[in-house]
Design a protein around this nucleic acid. Structure first.
Lengths: 221, 221
DNA sequence: AATTGATTAAAACTATTGTTTAATATTATG
DNA sequence: CATAATATTAAACAATAGTTTTAATCAATT
């Protein structure tokens, strides 16, 4: 029988400890470079524990993705603190701020973002699930906002491109963080800086989108 | 004695064949996943050839980076077709277009970009060189243009952030290409589409930067 | 033609990987 | 308490990696 069926506050069981250690190791090293021995060492369990509790390394990785995704979106949902009826401007600012905080923080919430950032470059067998269950919904959510901002009947491609522009700016600070750390060693990435980044991206994007709307209106007549 | 010291048109020698094969395999699989056996197989050489001609796998990777960088920038320099005295608007458009074509094409010119995109996520021992010899100069080149566009004395951070916004949009279509292929299977990435992407990024960014300049001027007074 | 140095080739070597096995320990249940 | 299910452990296994070794081959010079 399973022990610790619902241990809320005590020391985590073997399975949980493996999940946490694996999330960190996978995020730090990627699926390939991560070794089960390193994970088991950090979790203080025997090497065979992964195969016993998770069948194999690949399945553990899948479970880590589920686990870390829940962690990330519980803390930073797309519409964090949004009211019904808020303007698309506000909703865009909130979306950007949530995304930036979700992927750039140094708490466990950022694990999912770091795992996914690796999938962009080196897709694993989990890629399709991530695309359908995370990226497509996120893209759809943002498209809704941008569609409103652009107004009226806009070619889908226009909306797509603007979504790409917004998301790319947010993700950049995640996937280029090692480069940025080398290029600008004095730059810190605390809460204040993350808010500033989000503000810049939102301002930059809103200016561009509003101008695009004006230009298109001019072209239509 | 070395044969083929300067063979311009004949079949490439062992060293050259290894370089070409390695560039593709490294770009496709990354440094870690790429195997010397796969590289040697594609180059039709013995497994020991890499150690003989390049000492080890790591040194081969360094040589591949030099080789592919030269290839990429020879075809698509930052200022491709620019005249002296061109406006910063034009120079920004050219910069963006060159960058997009350099990394998104399906010719060997894109190898360097694909290799570097992996370094962003999973830096190797070659990372520092790439940062100093490729990223920093590129960033400086772009900063010059953006500084002019923003005009006058602008906080360095403002320029940095705008550079990040521009570059991020360009790189996005490279590092998110697998995701985009799944999200929008019908979307093609031929020459026409690359030009459209570059146009969008340039228009989007110029709108934002011009608006930022206006806003800052308003704040100053 | 012989010799010398550079190159290629096949095989073996060493290290590390994920996984499995089989024995032992632990826990829950009758 | 006894027993069966669950969990942990140490050791071995099989596969694959980069590299090295040693011998054979090739090309050019003397």
């Amino acid at each position: 029988m399973k022990k610790n069926h619902q241990n809320v506050e005590s020391t985590p069981g073997t399975r949980e400890r493996i999940l946490q250690a694996a999330a960190e190791v996978f995020a730090d090293s990627g699926f390939e470079r991560a070794t089960v021995r390193e994970i088991c060492s950090r979790a203080s369990v025997n090497v065979a524990a992964i195969n016993y509790h998770f069948r194999d390394k690949e399945n553990l990785y899948i479970e880590v993705l589920k686990y870390s995704k829940e962690l990330a979106f519980k803390k930073y949902p797309h519409d964090l603190g949004t009211q019904k009826g808020d303007s698309p401007e506000i909703r865009l600012r909130v979306f950007i701020r949530s995304l930036v905080l979700r992927i750039l923080g140094d708490d466990p919430s950022s694990l999912f973002g770091r795992l996914v950032s690796r999938e962009y470059i080196e897709p694993t067998s989990a890629f399709d699930v991530i695309v359908e269950e995370t990226m497509r919904p996120t893209f759809a959510f943002l498209s809704e906002i941008i569609g409103e901002l652009l107004g009226g009947k806009v070619p889908a491609m226009r909306v797509h491109m603007c979504c790409a522009s917004v998301i790319s700016q947010c993700l950049f600070f995640l996937y280029a963080r090692h480069a940025l750390a080398k290029l600008f060693p004095e730059q810190k990435f605390g809460r204040t800086e993350m808010e500033a980044i989000a503000d810049h991206i939102a301002g930059f994007s809103l200016s561009a989108i509003k101008d695009l709307r004006k230009t298109m209106k001019g072209e239509r007549k």
